[in-house]
Design a protein around this nucleic acid. Structure first.
Lengths: 124, 124, 124, 124
DNA sequence: GTGGTCTAGACCACT
DNA sequence: GTGGTCTAGACCACA
């Protein structure tokens, strides 16, 4: 499980975890029914509170990406590749709408925005 | 002064105001040294507290977009067109980096992201 | 009457005027019973409100530095050189106490403070 | 945490708090990453509003003296001794320039000012 | 008239 | 528990 968190970012920690895990699932890097590490293990590893991870897990479960079996642990939900793709698209579209609104508020044209994407996509 | 706020959004009200005013300034829709409506006038119009607007004003002042003169009012900072453009770029680049990080996490390729931009740019 | 004001300073305008006029009187640059320019004349010259100057005049009168004759104007109070010196000392001591408190809070020693004075006294 | 405030002073409460905390940090009396008492705790102790303290905290954060972690608390920023010294000097120089301007306006000579400093430095 | 500060309570998000 | 935001009213300083 590769997760990196930052205390300085303006995104809350539980969201950082959620984004990274959901990303790994949506990209198909984690197999169905694979076991997620225990909350405590992650809490220790990342030196954060179990409550924070619990919050991330809850969001993932709400979105149908994982499921928990009481007393056994958390598992990756088995979702068909097609459904996965749909979820990915849904997530991306939800975000792009908000983002475009902001760039438009800044006065950027479509071409300027696309140039910006091209300029920064390969960075880092 | 066109400002619209939503109580349901997850962005705080002061941020909504900040975004809209900064947008108008950065797009050059407000002239230098133009007087902003008084805090109280806006508070009445939008039916929010003066403190909330004050907060937005403070952020705008911190970013050098407006300045306040005690007892006289608040004014658009006089910034050269070039500097304005720089600020706009700076704001846009700060955001695009974070956004791209997220889209990559979702597994989108550059082309998919650009198609997404093209599909939604003219909406609404 | 030489007065210069700044909108950007954090000292209010009426205080800037008060400080400069009181300074000129305390340094003996203005003779007793000399007429001060009319409030309106100054207001025009400095492009500020008459109310602001009125406020400064009130403070000066309260401190016994000027007196107003209704319908005739404002005049420099006739104060003996000795009294003038006393007032000057009083003003300076009031201020030095507050200032030293602040420098001490910053952790400056007496010698550091004196060096600071020496370094900056001849500037500008 | 030693803070004392006065309701009668002409400096706003948030400024009084800012001055005292920044003083303690600049004098090195508070260690890096030390936790500050919670906003609410201070509010209760000093019997003032949380917002007032928040305002002081924001100023301190703006000046890079503290940092806040959402949901965890506020901490003293880790600043090297050298940087601390620089900040102290910067604060002191900003003030001394204004102060000297005033004393000069009163007609004090350098020697008179230094005598004043010597006379009052050990008081109280 | 303007902005600057403050209160006393409230609700929410995050840990 | 923490900080983040907001309200509705108040009083003051400044122009």
């Amino acid at each position: 499980m590769n997760i990196s968190i930052s205390n300085n970012a303006d995104t809350p920690i539980y969201k950082q975890i959620y984004d990274q895990i959901s990303g790994q699932i949506l990209r198909g890097e984690l197999d169905s029914d694979e076991t997620l590490p225990s909350i405590r293990a992650i809490a220790l590893e990342l030196r954060i509170s179990v409550i924070t991870i619990k919050k991330a897990w809850e969001e993932l479960e709400k979105d149908g990406l994982i499921y928990t079996v009481l007393g056994k642990g958390c598992f990756i939900a088995s979702v068909s590749a097609k459904k996965l793709q749909n979820k990915r698209d849904e997530f991306a579209q939800d975000k792009i709408k908000k983002d475009i609104k902001y760039y438009k508020e800044l006065g950027l044209s479509r071409d300027e925005l696309i140039r910006l994407v091209n300029d920064h996509f390969d960075e880092k």
